[in-house]
Design a protein around this nucleic acid. Structure first.
Lengths: 218, 218
DNA sequence: ACCTGAACACCGTTCAAGT
DNA sequence: ACCTGAACACCGTTCAAGT
């Protein structure tokens, strides 16, 4: 019906309400959500906000820097969702599983955004330190949860960093396969998540006999 | 020293020795290896081979189709390396671990190629059926190995497809984190691989008491 | 059948100029 | 300080024409 070949423009004469950087980020995110990363064009972003296509260069070095900032925001959101799942579910076994579910859910709900986050921007020539920090922050949420589980004697006492990397690999892999469309069957994601956490939990359970509750006397 | 701003050209007058498609694929792969996916330009490929930049359209619908073919080749190679590791190491526990190592090694040795393979081409509007088939072929190699391990009573008897998806998620996740440069420490990849397979193996071990060797009498 | 050169549309980026 | 429009370089793709 409506010919929305050309997006709605708001031809302001200038952009003077403070945070153009914020507006640019929001618009980039909106485009990524609907059209994917390939839909992100500087002209398009500018037109939607009502700003010249080169206004962006006042706030970002180039397009890659904009996408790096988008990634950074993604990791911040991801970390928040992980920690809130961990806290809401009681900081124990169930909460650990809930964190994993929250992780994969984030990826499935924001596939293009997630793809940008792991698209190799960090491995590029000019790695963004802020992006690296935020990525490590999300990782940290996982490490912290594992340390708590260890303190309560629920899982093995291995190096938490190593354990976290192991768990992260698993959830990251499931997330990627899911958004790549490689989990065809109905309910495949939920089934995989349940199976994976059962197997994972068995694999990292505290060794029998090496219980954390101190052996009484000797 | 040498000014190699402009790549060497082989200005043949025509390309008449049969397989231009093969040459295009090889050249694309060579560029991906050295300069990454963003370095793949139709003009560049044509110039290197000594052919017009539009000659490609006789063999591929467009650039995406070329990259899909590159992905397809990647999955074929990956499957070969997986099955050869499985066979070479004796088709048992050690061989299973060797498969995982071979998987991650492939990704680390060919990071850009691996990224193309999982870059979302399959989840695109026009999924390539040949690519899908080859991807499932590599997956199949993993399923087959698991079925053999089950037959020998070495691992749990869960649905092999589900188990394979679980294992694939893990190795895929490790591969991605490795090539994303998120495993900073010296020897981090090897350490992670060893730890991961120990934990994985524990998690999917055949349940004690549900041994595969038939209980003698009763 | 296969390949070519010219032309087109599109996009990131630069820059001198405006306020 | 922040923003703009014109211009430039680059790239995928189309197409009429060659052999």
């Amino acid at each position: 019906m409506a010919s929305h070949k050309r997006p709605a423009r708001k031809p302001r004469q200038a952009y003077h309400h403070g945070n153009l950087r914020r507006a640019l980020l929001d618009e980039a995110l909106a485009i990524i959500r609907v059209e994917g990363v390939s839909g992100v064009k500087l002209r398009e972003i500018g037109a939607r906000i009502g700003v010249s296509r080169t206004a962006l260069y006042r706030h970002f070095a180039d397009k890659d820097a904009l996408l790096a900032a988008v990634s950074t925001e993604g990791f911040r959101t991801l970390r928040q969702e992980l920690t809130s799942a961990w806290r809401a579910e009681g900081r124990a076994d169930d909460a650990f599983r809930a964190m994993g579910v929250a992780y994969v859910r984030f990826a499935v709900a924001n596939p293009s955004h997630y793809r940008v986050m792991f698209g190799g921007a960090l491995a590029s020539e000019t790695p963004d330190p802020e992006l690296a920090a935020e990525g490590e922050g999300a990782f940290r949420a996982l490490v912290d949860a594992l340390v708590e589980l260890q303190r309560d004697g629920m899982i093995r006492g291995d190096d938490p960093m190593l354990m976290a990397t192991y768990v992260w690999s698993l959830v990251h892999g499931m997330a990627m396969l899911a958004i790549d469309g490689r989990l065809h069957q109905q309910g495949a994601v939920e089934g995989l998540l349940q199976y994976a956490f059962d197997r994972l939990r068995t694999g990292i359970a505290a060794s029998p006999g090496v219980d954390s509750t101190p052996a009484r006397s000797t």
